[in-house]
Simulated assay, not measured.
Amino acid sequence: MKLKAVTAVVAALTLAACGGEQPKEVAAEVPHGYVEGAEEAAEAQSRLIVADTETGAVRVVDLITEEVHETGQVDGVRALATDGRFGYLTARDGTARVIDSGAWMVDHGDHVHYYRAKVRDVGVAPGKQPLTVYSDPAVSALSYSDGTTTLLDRAKLDKGSVAELGKITREPHAGVAIPYGEHILASVADPGKPLARGVRVHDRQGKAVAEIPEPCPDLQGQAVTRRGVVFGCADGALLVSEKDGAFTGAKIPYPRSVTAQERATAFFQRPGGATLAARAGETAAWSLDVGRRSWQYVETGPVAAVNAVGEGGPLLALTRDGMLRSFDGNGKEQAAIPLLTSEAATAGGPSIHIDTTRAYINDPRSADVYEIDYNDNLRRARTLKVGGKAGLVVETGR
């Protein structure tokens, strides 16, 4: 199973915060938003973590300098996820190796700090075969198919070591847990059920403190946005938000009855973006505008990968013929370019990653990652040679 590549605004944060406590000996000298051991920059220091699924080689590509950092090997790597800074690579034996890409951002709402540091191998995370990984300034949450979630100390992770804070244990199911609002939002299932029925609120030590009353039958798929956390349900989506320590849920129903094959089971987005994309069966896609709380059904053709630029921006779809296509908010095709061969598009592994100006699509059968200017008729801005084969890719630093 391919690990869900998950990115979010909260995932990119670090313990540094405006007005936060700083080392006494440097407090008067360090810049606003100081992060120890890192260099602050004026713009995003985006990087790609790339895994070759044939050789297991792991590389980090600096998108500014195009320098490729060789970062070791993960035997039989079969899944890759990111929390905005770290890559979590699942090996053949189910263990997850943690790679620090050395690129991240600190989002204070009204302004953002960007940082760069050295790439490094942090070590192996506890547990086997994590399904999802999400982080906030204090906690990284790794969720597994047995219903457990391991909570890692994010401060120690930032400094280069893996340390467990606690666990969340519930009925066995393909669960998810997301740090949000200084708490953890975790899926909850009924005994004997493989999928969750709703969401429960835990503190950062894993203790349950509240339950979202709105149900989310057969919960599959999730995304963190600036408007709250979205969970995919059989009957639409559940949006969970927080204000002054209180958590509330609101349903966003589908505009019509959908089959099990048509429903959204995995969401893709620009980090923090409030417009989400999801497959709608084999030949179409959903666009979910969280702000307007509305769905748009987009007839893309046979889908290999999909993602959404954000509010007011296009939905991008890589179709199985190797064409990259963009669609406006009404579902009308705006542009299309040939990008991959049909064999590469259907081989498994191609994905679309989006930041504020560019999209990145990997060719899993070659060393190529294509940088696309989605605001200029899908112009191919660069072809990045990443070394080996670009089997699995995530973007960090945004």
Rank of each mutant, 00 (worst) to 15 (best):
V77Y: 07
T95G: 07
L378C: 04
L324N: 01
S187E: 03
L288C: 07
E262C: 00
Q129C: 15
A284M: 11
Y34R: 00
L339S: 02
V240G: 00
P130H: 09
V10Q: 11
P213A: 06
D75S: 14
G166S: 04
S241N: 05
R200K: 12
R292H: 07
V394H: 05
H202P: 04
F327H: 02
M105L: 14
Q22G: 15
D121F: 08
L288D: 07
G102V: 01
A280E: 13
A304Q: 09
H173V: 14
C216L: 04
R47M: 06
Q220Y: 08
A367I: 12
K24M: 13
E67T: 15
C216Y: 00
T248G: 09
L13E: 13
A237R: 01
P172C: 04
S46Y: 04
D136I: 05
A196N: 05
G160I: 01
V26T: 01
T55Y: 08
T95C: 02
N307C: 05
H113Y: 05
A234Y: 10
Y297G: 13
V199P: 00
V61S: 06
V60A: 05
D153W: 09
V112N: 07
A234R: 01
T357H: 12
C18W: 15
D158T: 10
R47T: 10
T396M: 07
G175V: 05
G348M: 03
H111I: 14
V98W: 07
V230Q: 05
A347S: 13
Q269N: 04
A208I: 03
V98F: 08
G102F: 01
E54L: 15
G391L: 06
G388W: 04
Y88D: 06
Q205W: 14
S326P: 00
C18E: 15
A196S: 09
Y370K: 04
A367M: 11
V298S: 07
V74T: 04
R279H: 07
A125H: 02
E299L: 12
P302E: 14
K128R: 07
T150V: 11
S342C: 02
T396C: 02
Q261D: 09
R379N: 15
E21C: 13
E54R: 14
M1C: 12
L219V: 06
K251L: 14
P126R: 01
G19V: 09
V394I: 10
P364L: 10
R380P: 09
M105H: 08
R380E: 13
V119Q: 11
V209A: 03
R200T: 12
K159R: 15
T275A: 10
E211M: 11
C216M: 10
V10P: 05
A96H: 05
K332G: 03
D121G: 03
Q73N: 12
G84C: 04
